[in-house]
Nucleic acid binder design. Structure first.
Lengths: 165, 165
DNA sequence: GGTCCATAATTGAAGTCTCAACGATCCGAT
DNA sequence: ATCGGATCGTTGAGACTTCAATTATGGACC
């Protein structure tokens, strides 16, 4: 974010080479910040109140439900979510306490841990999914036309690729 | 997010009217989730390590630096950031402890509180801004072409408007 | 001028995430 | 074989956010 006030009272000298954002870029960036803040707030609230799940927990359920044997290595889960390993450890620990997943040591690699979706966890996902999808549509997908959504997806994929080297 | 496994073993009956996401929509939505996760992580880490500020604190500094008298009402600050009032109270309390802002009761409205940017806070912003802008460019602005960035901004503005009723 | 309700901001507890440090296991090179 | 570095996952502390309850003030209405 470029606080334009800061750009003033800056000497014409050459000590600073800051490429501040243009006004157009600034508008886009701030719209992004506000949009993501409101969106994650809306999604989190819907899931929490209607399903008793955090967004992070929901995402874990989804990944597991789609994987072979409904089981994933902790590290694969973490990479797939773009969450830190520590974060996934904490999230999964909470979910295990509630019976949504079960952890078992990995036979192939003594260091690894397999995270398995229980039937209760799958049922919880089935119950939560319709309301969550409805919220995603209401707040994002149905708000944009096809082109906007496509470009948004391409742009964020490029961002993810640029960061996740 | 639509766990496609859930869509199976669903009866052809009419009890459920869930409009699941299409595969294209699903790809966009997941790209969005991954992109925002990686981006906020990258921005937060840069600010924390190079300036000792959280992104929320930085945003507060920016808003205050642009406001008349470098002062804003707490509620205006909260609305402007799309953050909850409680969150802003906590953030500002931490910042006040570090001398970046000062709070004073509002003369016009006995309930209100004015948050003022101190000189130390302004100096901190000046020091932090170049590195932050560089990160925003490297991770987002310079990764996208002008059209992508423009559409991204428009889309997120539409999302914010759809949610913030 | 008193009642009622809306708004402003704070508080503390509980939940979530980050960070750095750790123990354990694997693997390649010697 | 074993040394040493890399990977895997966890841990606990501290930082940050949310939620519900609370205090206090403002304003409308009669």
């Amino acid at each position: 974010m470029t606080p334009h006030v800061v750009t003033e009272d800056r000497e014409a000298a050459d000590v600073e080479h800051v490429r501040w954002l243009t006004p157009d870029q600034q508008r886009c960036w701030r719209a992004y910040l506000e949009g993501t803040a409101r969106l994650s707030e809306a999604l989190g609230r819907q899931l929490e109140t209607e399903a008793g799940l955090s967004l992070a927990e929901y995402e874990v359920l989804v990944r597991l439900s789609e994987s072979d044997g409904r089981t994933m290595r902790m590290s694969v889960l973490a990479d797939s979510l773009a969450h830190s390993r520590s974060r996934v450890t904490h999230t999964v620990a909470r979910m295990e306490k509630h019976g949504l997943v079960a952890r078992q040591t990995c036979s192939a690699d003594g260091r690894g841990v397999n995270c398995h979706l229980t039937d209760a966890g799958f049922a919880r996902l089935e119950a939560a999914a319709p309301g969550h999808v409805a919220q995603v549509r209401e707040s994002l997908v149905d708000v944009l036309d096809d082109d906007q959504l496509r470009v948004l997806g391409e742009a964020m994929a490029a961002v993810a690729a640029a960061i996740g080297r």
